[in-house]
């Protein structure tokens, strides 16, 4: 019962580990190289997308492929309000705007579509990405006559710290939601939506609000990511890959625990970065094989695998002890 049992037991060690990691991250620009800072920034970006995807899709079981749309809206907010010709609004304000606009779109889309179940919801949300991509393309070509836009340069450390701040906020939000009444409502929807409604859960509201919260973080991450990209066009901003990556990273890590998706995102993002730089010609091939293998052999993710191994070891040790008892 994780709602009533709010004791310090089993709370200290994860808390300490989180603190150590946080300190290591905050001080990274002082001891790490520029390359490291940039690399950790992209890893943080993937973690944010993955964890905010899990925030909604994990407990409710609705597979959203709209991530690229919300992320891209943030990227475009950046391109519009922070052009290389001079920022129209302060960077942090734009980060919030990007998040809010994504949230608003999510509210609208959610209210319209969350009655679609199963694969239909996945198809629809993916359709949303392509629709925005194509409309954006058309708009840029025929209305504004720009092929792409340039975003102002921002110091790499600043990008890193804002990404880190979004990450920390997201982790706190996720943690609080999981422990709250709201999290329980989401899990009951994921378990059985009809039953949840009949015990008084306002199913539509819970789903739409969570969808909007998760979109906020995706949009905010998009804004700051755009300052790293510096060049933005609809294909860059609304790349469908960003819809699939969070799903794969979450599954790769395992969605049962809060840290599963984080670990999945870290390993995947690192792997992707390394493959892209070390094996640019075989990158797609290797990456594809890893994806297929992960889905085939790690249905519960890495965390699930580790838990399974741990149980095996314990059983083996218990079995050994029992045998010894029998011998004496």
């Amino acid at each position: 019962m994780n709602i009533t049992r709010f004791t310090s037991k089993g709370f200290l060690i994860p808390g300490l580990i989180s603190l150590v990691i946080l300190i290591a991250l905050v001080t990274l620009p002082f001891y790490g190289s520029l390359y490291n800072v940039i690399m950790v920034t992209s890893i943080l970006m993937y973690i944010i997308l993955t964890v905010s995807w899990v925030l909604f899709s994990g407990p409710t079981g609705y597979m959203s492929l709209a991530t690229a749309a919300f992320f891209g809206i943030g990227i475009y907010a950046s391109a519009i309000f922070l052009p290389n010709t001079g920022a129209i609004l302060p960077l942090l304000v734009v980060v919030v705007i990007g998040g809010l606009v994504s949230s608003l779109v999510a509210l609208g889309v959610g209210a319209l579509t969350l009655r679609l179940r199963g694969i239909y919801f996945a198809i629809f949300t993916f359709g949303l990405v392509v629709l925005i991509l194509e409309l954006g393309n058309w708009w840029e070509h025929t209305v504004t006559h720009t092929r792409g836009r340039f975003v102002m340069l921002v110091d790499n450390d600043v990008i890193f710290y804002i990404m880190l701040a979004i990450f920390v906020l997201l982790m706190l939000t996720t943690y609080l939601i999981r422990r709250s009444k709201f999290g329980l409502a989401m899990r009951s929807i994921g378990e059985n939506e009809e039953a949840a409604a009949h015990i008084g859960v306002n199913v539509t509201m819970v789903k739409v609000i969570t969808f909007a919260i998760s979109a906020f973080f995706m949009g905010a991450a998009g804004v700051i990511w755009a300052t790293k990209l510096t060049y933005v066009d609809p294909y860059v901003a609304f790349n469908p890959l960003f819809s699939f990556m969070p799903v794969l990273m979450a599954i790769f890590g395992g969605m049962g625990q809060i840290y599963g998706p984080v670990i999945g995102a870290v390993i995947f993002a690192y792997l992707q970065e390394k493959l892209q730089t070390e094996f640019p010609y075989y990158y797609m091939l290797i990456f594809g094989f890893v994806l297929v293998a992960a889905i085939l052999y790690l249905p519960d993710g890495l965390i699930g695998l580790i838990q399974k191994l741990w149980r095996l070891i314990r059983r083996w040790r218990k079995g050994g002890a029992a045998k010894q008892d029998a011998n004496t």
């Binding site: 597979m63 694969i119 996945a122 699939f244 799903v247 794969l248 599954i251 075989y282 990158y283 797609m284 091939l285 290797i286 990456f287 594809g288 094989f289 890893v290 994806l291 297929v292 992960a294 889905i295 085939l296 249905p299």
Partner: peptide
């Protein structure tokens, strides 16, 4: 869900 994701990986393999 899992087969959809697997075919996404397959797409990468074939394109690669």
């Amino acid at each position: 869900a899992s087969s959809l994701l697997a075919t996404f990986g397959l797409m990468y393999v074939i394109q690669g």
